[in-house]
Structure formats: C-alpha cells, structure tokens
C-alpha cells in the first residue's frame, strides 16, 4: 500500500519534471502555420523552390521519398518485408485453417468480382503516377494488397494464394527490396553516390517509375502475404 503510494508520487513527480520543460518549450515555439517560423524559411523553402528540379518529380513528396530521403524509404521497404518474414516464420508453418463453413454470399461475390479489375487499375494508376499526382508506390501497393485480400474473401484464399507459385510469391514480395537495392547500386556509376538518381531527366523518370512499381508490387504482395499467413492459407 505504502509502496504503491510512493510509486504514484514518484510517477507524478517524473511527469511534472517532464511536462514543465516541454510546456516551456511549447510556449517558445512560433505559432502554428506562421510563415516566419524557421521551419518554413530555411529547409522547406529550399525544397519548395528547387525540390521539383533537383528531385526529378513534380510531386515534391515523391521526390523527397525516393531521392532526397531514399535511404530512409529503403529502410521502410526493408521493414515491411522483414515483417512478413517474421509473421511467416511464426504463423506460416501453422497447419491449415479450418475451411469456412459458410459459402460467400452471391451478392458479395458478384460485387467483388465486378470491382476487382477497377481496383487493380486504380492501384496501378496510383503507383505509376506517383511522381506527378499524390500517391505512389506505398499507397498503390496497399490498394493492390487490399484487392488480393478482397478476392481471397470470395474466391477461397487457397485459390488466390496459389494463383502464383509459392516460390514466385517470395520473389514478388522481395521485389521492393530488390528493385530499390538495384537502383541504389546503379546510383554509383550514374550519379556518383549510392541511392543517387542520374541527372539525365528521361533516365531519372524511368528509374523513379521503376522504384514506384517495385515498392508497389512488393508492398502489395507483402500485405496480401501477411493476410494469407495469418489466415492460414500460406503453405510456402
């Protein structure tokens, strides 16, 4: 009882000790959205002024993700691939899920089959136009993965998981990491440093779209793989 009380007092003191400097710092911050704030006058201004030209894509976010902060993005791609590896290592070997006794509703079945191609086209659109419009590899990849998961709801997960052989699934899931690593190494001869994109606009465009496609296909396959592994359909 006494110990618990001491613990609570200690917690309160620690929180106060943390809160006071934070609040002091908050008060010193420039008002949100203020145009004269240092964040908007130095780095951001530079990106907005010359980012599109230097980064090679009209959509500044894509330029930052794939060019200026390419190492960071490569880390993210690696993380989701590793997440699938971990889940597959734990859940992938678990024996088959019991078959769902309830057949899918004919209405749901029809609608998903009707919408599936449209979702796939939209996903590809988002991926390939990532350098011009909002969106890109990650977003499009998630849409692709969502389409595979939707299909597996009505078509029986086994059929979808076996649409591609187990070995090809692994390669598909590694696409993002492999393509990104390849482009990163190509940066050495083309731009002079790792993760660099060449200055020649056409080539840079091609590499940007290749990166987006790799991230998209890899991401989609990883997310669908996570679903299959947890739902117990993946035997690879």
């Amino acid at each position: 009882m006494n110990r618990r009380r001491a613990g609570r007092i200690l917690t309160a003191v620690l929180i106060a000790a943390l809160a006071v400097p934070l609040m002091y710092g908050m008060v010193q911050l420039p008002a949100p959205g203020h145009a004269d704030a240092p964040a908007h006058t130095n780095v951001s201004a530079g990106y907005i002024e010359r980012g599109a030209e230097l980064g090679g894509s009209e959509n500044l976010v894509t330029g930052v993700l794939l060019n200026f902060r390419a190492l960071d993005t490569f880390g993210e791609v690696l993380v989701i691939f590793t997440a699938w590896l971990a889940v597959a290592a734990v859940a992938g070997t678990a024996s088959n899920a019991e078959r769902d006794p309830v057949p899918p509703s004919p209405v749901v079945d029809y609608v998903i089959r009707l919408l599936g191609p449209f979702i796939a086209i939209f996903a590809l659109f988002v991926i390939v136009n990532g350098h011009v419009l909002p969106g890109g590899g990650f977003q499009g990849g998630v849409l692709l993965g969502a389409m595979l998961i939707l299909l597996s709801l009505v078509m029986d997960a086994e059929t979808v998981a076996r649409a591609v052989s187990a070995r090809s699934w692994i390669w598909l899931r590694a696409t993002g990491v492999l393509v990104f690593a390849m482009v990163a190494v190509m940066g050495l001869p083309l731009a002079g440093y790792l993760f660099g994109l060449p200055d020649e606009p056409g080539l840079r465009q091609v590499l940007t779209v290749a990166l987006e496609l790799g991230i998209g296909i890899g991401g989609g396959a990883v997310l669908a793989g996570l679903f299959f592994a947890i739902a117990g359909a993946d035997r690879s």
Partner: peptide, 23 residues
Amino acid sequence: APDVAMTEAAVGAGITTVLFLVV
C-alpha cells in the same frame, strides 16, 4: 497533405483493420 491522407486511408483505415480483425 493528400499524400499522407491517402496513406492514412489505405494503410490505417484499410489494411491495418483487416489484419487486426484476422488476428
């Protein structure tokens, strides 16, 4: 921030929920 919004809708509201529900 349309890029972040798209990611949030697709990842946060879509896939994450599906994975949570499967688990």
